[in-house]
């Protein structure tokens, strides 16, 4: 009895201390994540459109925005655009990042420096990435067109960002560029944890290079690679800066992803209800991905 009391007091004080330290983060999360999400849900449920952008509380609740948005073919066109953009950038970025990680995992002079340099695009702000590629792919003075002209691959200038047929590729290129370092770094970290003995054993068993990649390397890095793919895909799915600062969703909606569309609905047409429904659609897609990838995510986050 005499012993139990001081321990429980210690525990109580520990608890209080733990809570006090946690409190600012709880307030921030509540105020800046939970409450805004609650607002989004409520705004998506208001009928009609308020005259006052800031106050929709007078409108009745209902599902009319959901009906309108979900039955609008433009929504599904944007959903397809988003998926094409996400898959089109994540596929090459993953393969490129993986290949580059394999290269950097080899022993050669200067690899530490190259590893750091190759990380640089990750730190470049999305808007600057946009601007760099707008310049590289400029129709008249862009160095890409100049190179293609020199090689005889094009006879007329390609207006990469303003031509409907090339705009998607033009926004995918900077996205690949910015997201590749993350793949390289995370996969490289996993590669460096593979014990050398495994490769030696495989070599002694007569495995060739491709077989070693398939049966030794891949199983060892799969967890990290899948996690990187999921995180990067979640990022590309909601990416806004690169598309907005280059094409703004155009030309003729060729690059109008759900994120761009939600933003335009809210801040160009002041259709807050529609914008919030589009946001809910995005969250639903993200949720499907998270549920599909819950195993690797669980290991990382719980």
């Amino acid at each position: 009895m005499g012993m139990a009391r001081p321990i429980s007091r210690m525990e109580r004080e520990d608890r209080r201390f733990a809570f006090v330290l946690l409190a600012p983060a709880l307030v921030a999360t509540g105020l800046l994540i939970l409450y805004p999400m609650y607002l989004v849900v409520m705004l998506s449920l208001r009928e009609g459109k308020s005259m006052n952008f800031l106050d929709s509380s007078g409108l009745p609740l209902g599902l009319s925005h959901y009906r309108d948005v979900l039955s609008d073919p433009a929504t599904w066109a944007s959903a397809v655009t988003t998926l094409v953009y996400t898959a089109g950038s994540m596929g090459p970025a993953f393969l490129g990042g993986f290949a580059f990680a394999l290269l950097l995992n080899e022993r050669f002079p200067g690899r530490r420096w190259l590893r750091s340099l190759a990380l640089l695009p990750w730190a470049v702000p999305g808007v600057l990435v946009s601007v760099l590629f707008l310049w590289l792919l400029d129709a008249s003075y862009g160095i890409v067109n100049a190179a293609l002209r020199d090689l005889g691959l094009i006879s007329r200038d390609v207006a990469w960002f303003t031509d409907e047929r090339t705009a998607m590729a033009a926004v995918i290129a900077p996205t690949i560029w910015k997201s590749m370092p993350f793949f390289t770094l995370t996969i490289l970290a996993a590669l460096q944890a593979v014990p050398e003995e495994l490769y030696e054993a495989a070599r002694m068993d007569g495995a060739n290079r491709l077989q070693r990649l398939r049966f030794v390397t891949w199983p060892a890095v799969r967890g990290a690679a899948v996690l990187a793919l999921v995180l990067n895909t979640l990022w590309a799915f909601r990416e806004f800066d690169i598309i907005f600062a280059t094409t703004g969703g155009g030309p003729y909606r060729a690059t109008e992803t759900l994120g761009i569309r939600a933003y335009q609905e809210a801040f160009s047409y002041f259709e807050i209800g529609r914008a919030c429904v589009l946001g809910m659609v995005m969250l639903a897609f993200a949720m499907v991905l998270v549920l599909a990838a819950r195993r690797p995510l669980q290991k990382e986050f719980f």
């Binding site: 994540i33 995180l231 919030c276 995005m282 949720m287």
Partner: peptide, 8 residues
């Protein structure tokens, strides 16, 4: 990580 900036 799921919340789009253009939504929040």
């Amino acid at each position: 990580k799921m919340l789009p900036g253009s939504l929040i």
